[in-house]
Design a protein around this nucleic acid. Structure first.
Lengths: 353, 353
DNA sequence: ACTATATTCGGGTACGTAAACGTATTGATA
DNA sequence: TATCAATACGTTTACGTACCCGAATATAGT
């Protein structure tokens, strides 16, 4: 530990060199009025010369502001615990930044209930937060909401899925198309020419099917582009209870005798795993997301691969981005695609969500 | 943005409640002498009551200390650019923390020259840094060095490979055994009973072979534990020039006609790829590390899988850990195993090192 | 020329903590 | 008893920035 050499680059130094007071320098720095053109130019020049960077510590300390951020994501449901992970990320970020005078308010909606989403957005707008982290499951309603945010000049970050006309500060989440593409690539290693591939979409109508379709598109694209002749069968399951799923799967396996690979387009892969375990099917099973139930099946060798895109990171990074943008005016990446991670029995223990 | 409600939990408030000055509170907080037992107890109690947490911003601002951290890692060589990545991570962390009064000095050694390592450690100890980030390629010498650090009370963090008697603040890097184990698991999907597997170790004697052996051990363990009957052939290549490598590989392929998978235990996989491309061998090739030359071969379909363990993150996290420990006294994870990432042609573009 | 108003600027305080320095009290020693 | 050191505590300045308040100056209008 050594004494710091006296700072030679602060506002004080700038003021000294320009023969003005620090208040004037401050005005220039914050683009406030009350400074003559001459003085402003002179100060600006000195700022450039010194390559002045404000001391962030002092800045936040002196600013008697409290930033309030809100998050709006689906609540964790019985159907899937997927949203536990982003929430954890949010909580972790909250923990880290709250000491810097940031308050985070969390709001949740029911993924099966559009009205709950709309309701929450209204409540949020009433509180006039300084920034918003949003998981936009319902496209149309989300567009409406984000437009309102724009009008009120409230920056927002999207996670998990993007919106078409994205005026968001940033999108942080998967590239769904490539995610499916990768799935197909993996599958290509695992099958022979004559084998059949079963793609399974499990999702209620009301869900944001956008996700699944994009993935399927990527999956199919791989086969087209690479002239693979895999025989692809598609199965849509709209009723998400286990009985319906088992019934539909049974039928598929009866109709198609040489299914070798099953590709489930979302985190509900554990339901399929349950069926496969019970019925002793000898297939390779690929699905999505690092959920406990999925990991269990993977450890038991029923699920072979899980593709995962760091849901916790999405929450964490989203909040941190907002914070940095609001507190320091840092620029943030407009689009931040999460890595596409491949999990197997052998590396899942080391996975960082 | 709202005005912050006047802080009711600072040293000032504690001082007010205890009927003492803030200096006395400060003394108690820092365990300095000059406070009577009574007063100290009283203040301690109030601190607990208020659940006082010091304002980190103010703390760092007021402390006229500069922390100096040093890093010691191999220099990037012609043989492998692996260490470019950790260096980048270090530089990124440096960029982030230098505004908080942290100075980072970088030192490098030649991975093929023990003496250069020892030399650098001496120089470093002379400068008496506040913390050290170390990549301990040479085990014995590193043990000596870290023991000296312990004596001088300088905390250090290890990256990339661990040391047996680890009194380090933290180890951040791969679990090599599991890394190899995963490789075998991947391979198991790709081969038939009769196929042969070629394990290739490319490394000069002087290198830290520890790495490679651990990986190989994991690889073999998988086959034993899972009763796989794969026919494993091992090839050690001590001369790292391309000609020797090609000669040795040629011989191996001549001797063994049914090699289907080649597993290279380190980042030199691109050399093998070069051979395979030139000789049109139809094998699946698996190797390590996200290097440009490796990615190139993967994009061209010569390398099928790369296993990678976030080398950049290792550098970044290592420095940040040191900083947080020294600046804030945060506790850091004693062992932080990096995730074991599987890269293919299709997800490498989204990889975050 | 004289007020009224706008513009330009500096002084000073605040944020919460660190720590150098000063002061008062006590008790031991010569 | 005079001296001194140790102890316990308070006062004050400093860190670098934000921003309020008011003073000085310039400009305009009569």
């Amino acid at each position: 530990m050594k004494k710091r050499i006296t700072e030679l680059t602060g506002v004080k130094e700038i003021a000294r060199r320009a023969n003005v007071s620090i208040a004037t320098v401050d005005r220039v720095l914050h683009n406030r009025k009350g400074v003559s053109k001459q003085t402003k130019e002179k100060i600006t020049q000195i700022i450039d010369e010194l390559n002045y960077k404000p001391n962030l510590l002092a800045q936040r300390l002196a600013s008697r502001k409290t930033l309030r951020l809100v998050t709006l994501i689906p609540e964790s449901s019985k159907e899937t615990s997927f949203w536990d992970a982003p929430l954890k990320g949010i909580e972790q970020a909250d923990e880290e930044i709250k000491q810097f005078g940031i308050i985070v308010n969390k709001y949740f909606y029911d993924q099966n209930l559009k009205s709950s989403f709309v309701e929450q957005t209204k409540i949020i707008l009433d509180t006039k937060p300084d920034g918003i982290l949003l998981a936009p499951s319902f496209i149309e309603e989300s567009v409406t909401f984000t437009n309102q945010c724009k009008e009120l000049n409230i920056p927002y970050v999207l996670i998990d899925s993007d919106l078409p006309n994205n005026k968001s500060l940033s999108y942080i989440g998967p590239n769904l198309y490539h995610s499916g593409y990768l799935g197909a690539h993996l599958v290509s290693y695992l099958i022979k020419e004559s084998d059949e591939i079963l793609i399974v979409n499990i999702s209620r109508e009301i869900d944001n099917q956008h996700h699944l379709l994009k993935k399927e598109e990527g999956f199919r694209a791989y086969y087209q582009e690479n002239n693979k002749t895999g025989n692809i069968i598609k199965l849509d399951i709209k009723d998400t209870d286990i009985k319906s799923i088992e019934r539909d799967l049974s039928k598929a396996f009866n109709d198609h005798s040489s299914i070798k690979v099953v590709f489930v387009t979302n985190s509900r892969v554990s339901k399929v795993a349950q069926f496969i375990e019970n019925n002793q099917k000898d297939v390779i099973l690929i699905g999505y997301d690092f959920l406990k139930e999925n990991i269990d099946y993977m450890d038991r060798g029923i699920i072979d691969f899980l593709v995962c895109q760091k849901p916790k990171q999405q929450g964490y990074r989203g909040l941190i981005s907002l914070y940095q943008h609001l507190a320091f005016g840092s620029t943030v990446e407009k689009i931040y695609f999460m890595p596409i991670d491949i999990l197997t029995k052998e590396n899942s223990a080391f996975y960082r969500n």
